[in-house]
Write a protein that binds this DNA or RNA. Structure first.
Lengths: 110, 110
DNA sequence: TTTGTAGTTCGCAAAACTACGAACAATAAA
DNA sequence: TTTATTGTTCGTAGTTTTGCGAACTACAAA
């Protein structure tokens, strides 16, 4: 039955949710904050900023990489992580557009 | 032992992560998008926009309410939901500040 | 060859998330 | 009083997330 016909989420909503989800953990926000503001960005430096085990840090980094927000590059014996500028700006634009929606509007409740 | 001493997440990072997490599902983005752009905002209208059961919609609404992004008010026999303007603007400011961090910066990788 | 450094991956456990149908509550209408 | 409408809550199931230590990989140095 066509209970849910024609009600798929839009690509944009899916993409924004994906970015938001990646940002939905304080460790990952801390990582992004760190990478966005500093030039030093080796795994060890990141691990040092966080109250969690390196295995867990590695997992969070993987999620951020999967979401496209960061990228990693091997510099034996270290790994250098950085903001993925292109997708960072894409995410920024998504959030900006999203919040702008509400601008200059009198909501039904407040 | 003081393995993780002095490395707690900051309040701001926790709060931003909380907002982001609440936005980390396409259904919840769709709900917020809908509430932010329209004046009609009864539960039934929202449910109608989504490809999921009403029980699930109710749960998503609860999460958005818990994160402070929306508010509900009973208008028997319906329930009217709306953006919580104060926290919406707070969230917007958080994201804006966060992304601005990266502005005019040459990252270590790109 | 053994040792050390820097990270990743594996295997596991606990908790949280997502989703549903059924049952329920509260009011209004017949 | 019975029935209908509008949502919420409950109970359950399956999946995903978060976290850890241990094991592993890759390379360099001793």
């Amino acid at each position: 039955m066509d209970k849910y016909k024609n009600k798929d989420y839009t690509i944009d909503n899916e993409q924004l949710a994906r970015f938001a989800k990646a940002m939905g953990h304080p460790a990952r926000i801390t990582i992004l904050h760190y990478l966005a503001s500093l030039d030093s960005c080796y795994f060890g430096d990141i691990h040092n900023e966080l109250p969690i085990a390196k295995a867990t840090v590695s997992q969070h980094l993987k999620e951020l990489k999967d979401a496209g927000l960061i990228q990693g590059e091997i510099e034996t014996p270290k790994v250098k992580y950085c903001i993925n500028r292109e997708n960072w700006e894409k995410a920024q634009a998504y959030f900006e557009t999203f919040f702008a929606l509400r601008k200059e509007k009198t909501s039904c409740c407040n």
